[in-house]
Amino acid sequence: MNATLELRDVSVRLGRTPVLRGCSFAVRSGEVVALAGPNGAGKSTALRTAAGLLKPSGGTVLLDGRPLGEWQRRERAGRIAYLPQFPTLPALFRVRDAVAMGRAPYIPMLGHESEADRAAAARALGRAGLAALAERPVDELSGGERQRVALARAFAQEPALLLLDEPTANLDLRYQRAILGTLRADAEASGPGCLVVIHDLALAAQFCHRLILLDEGRVAADGPPQEVLAAPLLSRLYGTALETLAHPVTGVPLVVHALDPNDGTAP
């Protein structure tokens, strides 16, 4: 499944406030792209715009070369899955049923779910490591399990591109690795491409093929993590002294707080 999602000079206003100001970047199948930047840089807005949930006030969003607005709702939902930072899992639903919701784009208005729908939902459960929890009510799950249920719902949608808003924000280190590792392995095995909003730059550098830094609604840098994080722009961007080290074995860049030059303490 090959797909390309491209933001071309996109501007978005929320109310009267311009949030994106001429933002351009693209995501393709086969890659995991991290979207980072300081609070308020427009990461979530960029993601929602890419998902077709916000209308740009300028520029266009193209899915496979065709403006997103020209796609049929269901057709688009079969290509792009989106998860907000705090996905909803309806109370008293079993894990299996919550995941099966991802099949919505494929089930006709008056129809029933087909064998293919059930199979896709079962595959998604397996990929998210939830097979053993399938019959449990979502109300009983831990934070990490709930996050995986939401992710499985997006998997069940069988999209060509996954747009995820901070999928690792409230996960412990093990699940951060499990989820990002799965996404990367899937993308490389011709699964869906990913655009992931992420705050932890070391995590982004470790698991993502590409890193896009947003600053005040514009793309400040877009490239392989090694290049983007080596540039001196990080400290200016985040407004705090930062240093980039290389992992002693892998060479993957690690961003840490620099020593405070005034009092000599590490913050």
């Binding site: 929602r48 998902a51 077709g52 949930l53 709702r73 269901r74 057709e75 688009r76 939902a77 079969g78 792009i80 899955a81 989106y82 998860l83 907000p84 996905p87 909803t88 309806p90 639903f93 049923d97 919701m101 991802g102 919505a104 784009p105 089930i107 208005m109 008056l110 949608q157």
Partner: peptide, 23 residues
């Protein structure tokens, strides 16, 4: 009753429901 499945999906946030292709 015909809209029951859609009622399930409307339990999600509006963004999530729209991203699933619901009008």
């Amino acid at each position: 009753v015909v809209l029951a499945r859609q009622l399930d999906h409307l339990l999600l946030s509006e963004d999530e429901a729209r991203a699933l292709g619901l009008p």
